[in-house]
Design a protein around this nucleic acid. Structure first.
Length: 263
DNA sequence: AACACTCCCAACCGCAGATGC
DNA sequence: CGCATCTGCGGTTGGGAGTGT
């Protein structure tokens, strides 16, 4: 059926924003606040489509943005969240104050992907590359038997293990992913409609919450799934540490929560 | 200095969900 | 309930900056 374009393209500027355009947008939003993006350009005297204005504001002009390099802690948090949420950049950004989804997405594609590959981890699945690739390797090996990608990655993996302080999950651990699948985690994610408890406490995934709280899988609408830990299930790990950023068990391994497939 | 190549990030595009009528 | 419109998201791209030859 097709949709009408978001704006009259023939009368809008494209490409990089000028200082003057930035100033106009900032001034307008300061005066009127964020609001109807479609009518904003006209009201602000900008020859841009609303979408472009929104993007510029959110990704670049917003005053609460944290510019500059990502810290190592942010790196690991992004990896952890990505393993949990997949390419849900906006959700990941929601856990990183001052960072935008676009920024995180770019950072992932340019830095973290490579970093994970160097660790021998498939960035898409967060599994050791040997497993993730094995099926493809079997298929491709017939076509190109000279490439031993898996072997090379395993070599990288082994080397990385020596230097990473055990950040990686070994293949052996991967064979028994039960405990890893439901981590001690308190992301306070609000993907599903906010969960209201009697005391309005956030669901504590780390501990399974208060005894009456649904588990993380339930909060994602996956009740009774294999990831559901409400009934003392596989994810109800107890007694783990909660010190610093290790509340995500960042120090213990890269987790795989893609089984919580949301699509 | 000039050119080629790579990297990075701001911005664009198309789609899907949300919302209003 | 169905349609139209708006907003937000994720994937992709273009071009500037940086680096190597």
């Amino acid at each position: 059926m097709g949709r009408s374009p978001c704006c009259e393209k023939s009368h809008t500027n494209k490409g990089a924003w000028t200082k003057e355009e930035d100033d106009r947008l900032i001034a307008y939003i300061r005066a009127h606040g964020e609001g109807c993006w479609r009518s904003l350009p006209k009201a602000a005297g900008l020859l841009r489509c609303g979408k472009s204005c929104r993007l510029r504001w959110i990704n670049y002009l917003r005053p609460d943005l944290k510019r500059g390099n990502f810290t190592g802690e942010e790196d690991e948090l992004i990896i952890k969240l990505h393993s949990l949420l997949g390419n849900k950049w906006s959700l990941i950004a929601g856990r990183l104050p001052g960072r935008t989804d676009n920024e995180i997405k770019n950072y992932w594609n340019t830095h973290i992907r490579r970093k994970l590959l160097n660790r021998g981890i498939d960035p898409a699945t967060h599994r050791p590359i040997t497993q993730a690739q094995s099926a493809a390797q079997e298929a491709s090996a017939e076509q190109n038997p000279t490439i031993s990608y898996a072997a090379a990655k395993e070599e990288n993996l082994e080397q990385e293990r020596k230097t990473s302080g055990g950040l990686l999950i070994s293949c052996k651990e991967e064979q028994n992913p039960v405990e890893e699948r439901c981590p001690d985690l308190n992301l306070e994610l609000r993907i599903s409609p906010p969960h209201h408890t009697e005391t309005d406490q956030p669901v504590n995934i780390k501990t399974g919450g208060r005894s009456s709280s649904p588990c993380f899988a339930c909060s994602l609408g996956l009740k009774n799934s294999r990831d559901c830990s409400c009934n003392g299930g596989i994810g109800s790990s107890r007694g783990s540490n909660f010190n610093g950023y290790d509340f995500l068990r960042l120090k213990s391994g890269v987790l795989d929560f893609r089984s919580l497939e949301m699509k």
